[in-house]
Amino acid sequence: MSAVVEISGLRKSFGEREVLKGIDLAVAQGEVVCVIGPSGSGKSTLLRCVNLLEQPTGGAVSVLGVEVTDPDVDIDRVRTHVGMVFQQFNLFPHRTVLENCTMAQRKVLRRGASEAEEVARRNLEQVGLADRADSHPAQLSGGQQQRVAIARALSMDPALMLFDEPTSALDPELVGDVLSVMRDLAEAGMTMIVVTHEMAFAREVADRVVFMDDGQIVEQGSPDHVIGNPGEERTRTFLARVLDPTHHHDA
């Protein structure tokens, strides 16, 4: 199994502040990796360095065999194969749901109108929103918008999907629909990196869980190991806060 993503010695600073302090991580074909950790630990920055929404300050990132940290890389071509789903959905509000899913297919992949529409409708069907193709994003609930965002990314036929806290902006009752779409995707064999606070999802769907704190990977392994029986003190403290937020635990 070849690595879809290979990260080595990745560093990223915003001004004086170093957010990523040397990350090494490889993600294999078909693998689902969940990244967990306290806010400000650098999880989102790590994800955004994979498709170069953030420019790393050091180290190397290679995606699908292409070194994206090479200054002369055609990043637009690499991004075509890497779908990304954002916390705030970021659907295009001036376009319909269908147009959201066809725009990049037409402009980037140069697909014809009918082919693009067919692909878009198939993916909207998959996320359970075939009937909302002609709606505008503002007419949908947060959960529906996020599922459209997933369909939009899938319409590019990506080899890798990045999820940046996809359920953090949702009302609690809408989280389930989005997670179940993601679970289906994982079961279909998609390679995924998911930054999330949903421990139940990570435990059930992830092949590997990565715990990050203070810009470093503290611990990684199977969900049963990292979430069920963490070896590191920092992981235990974090999980105690997340899983049992109302109880006060003394260290």
Binding site: L53, D76, T80
Partner: peptide, 16 residues
């Protein structure tokens, strides 16, 4: 800014 990021992450150029 998220609008630009969404478009760029789909492989669209800055002009597009």
């Amino acid at each position: 800014k998220g609008q630009v990021e969404a478009a760029r992450s789909l492989g669209m150029t800055s002009g597009q």
